[in-house]
């Protein structure tokens, strides 16, 4: 039997999707001469609140908050969205480990995401007191390893690698355990794209195969051993390996330029979400809406910073992501 518990939420999201930026709005923003003109357009489209100052950071931060305010109003079980919050949660873990190792008291402001399942203050308290068992199960081991590694070796990168891998594994496990196929697709896509990014960056910085294997999380659509070996032999080998996988388009983006590759990573996620436009009774359209809004905000941020720094339209356009609608 069909589950109809998301009927209200999906219908409301359908109504909200009409407010998402289409590619023509993005073109309108690109055609603006200055950042101020862009800000005026997005404000006319309803971005920010009446009392939000006309500056990019304030408007974009407000829009980011609105995403979760809207989802919270839908009255659905929020635990299905945990997988989407893992990147922020593990980012906070990284920040807390570094703060705990470098400062005796207090915390560095503005490097934490607020509104996470474990609050930044609690996270820092857990790390400082070394009471890792208070963390969620999928974080505790990585937190202990990362903390001890940073304390003994002072290697911040290794600490990041340990936590990033734990984040990818947590996302993948949450995907496998999820009832909704969209969460599985999301998890697979996130982990595979992250592995490809690790391979590309490791190749550019001449990292060893062991380092790559330590950083990459296994997933179904990629063989991390082969990817790591390819990365160790060169960029052409990565492109060749990816050509034989479902990420063949990513291979051509790598060959084109680093920004084209970053753009492809985000566009691929939007492509994965396209099928959710035709779902009426699952959590999929909600997940797709959250990702579409984040993608939209990221694209607007790219355009605004491009305009602010006087980049040419062509170089901004090269970085503009595909929209969901």
């Amino acid at each position: 039997m069909f589950d109809t518990k998301y009927t209200y939420a999906v219908a409301r999201i359908r109504a909200l999707e009409t407010g998402l930026f289409t590619s023509s709005v993005i073109e309108q923003l690109l055609a603006c001469d200055t950042e101020q003109q862009c800000l005026q357009i997005i404000q006319e489209k309803g971005w920010g609140d009446a009392d939000t100052p006309l500056n990019a950071d304030a408007i974009l931060a407000r829009e980011q908050e609105k995403i979760w305010e809207t989802i919270g109003e839908l009255g659905v079980d929020m635990s299905v969205f945990d997988v989407l919050s893992y990147p922020n949660l593990f980012h906070n873990l990284k920040a807390a480990v570094k703060d705990a190792c470098t400062q005796e008291n207090g915390r560095t402001m503005n490097i934490y995401y607020e509104d996470t399942a474990v609050s930044p203050d609690e996270m820092l308290d857990i790390i400082r007191s070394k009471d890792f068992s208070r963390l969620p199960e999928n974080m505790a081991g990585a937190a202990r390893d990362a903390y001890e590694t940073l304390l003994h070796t002072g290697d911040g990168q290794l600490c990041d690698v340990i936590i990033d891998k734990a984040a990818l594994e947590a996302i993948y496990e949450a995907g496998k355990a999820a009832r909704d196929s969209i969460i599985r697709d999301y998890a697979e896509s996130v982990v595979a794209v992250a592995d490809i990014k690790i391979a590309v960056r490791s190749q550019k910085t001449a990292k060893s195969i062991d380092f790559m294997k330590r950083a990459m999380a296994p997933c179904q659509s990629l063989n991390v051993d082969q990817l790591a070996r390819a990365a160790a032999s060169g960029m052409d080998a990565i492109v060749e390996y990816l050509s034989g996988t479902v990420y063949a388009e990513g291979a051509s983006a790598i060959a084109q330029s680093p920004s084209a590759f970053e753009r492809w990573c985000d566009n691929r996620m939007m492509q994965t979400m396209q099928s959710q436009k035709y779902e009426s009774f699952s959590v999929g359209p909600l997940v797709a809406y959250i990702l579409a809004r984040e993608n939209e905000i990221k694209t607007v941020r790219i355009i605004l910073s491009g305009k602010q720094n006087g980049f040419s339209n062509d170089s901004i356009r090269e970085r503009v992501r595909d929209m969901y609608v």
Binding site: T7, Y8, V10, A11, R12, A15, L16, S280
Partner: peptide, 17 residues
């Protein structure tokens, strides 16, 4: 009931419909 839930979702964002 099912259709009403969907209708409420739309009207909560766009009462003109």
């Amino acid at each position: 009931g099912i259709a009403g839930q969907a209708a409420s979702g739309v009207v909560s964002e766009d009462p003109s419909k």
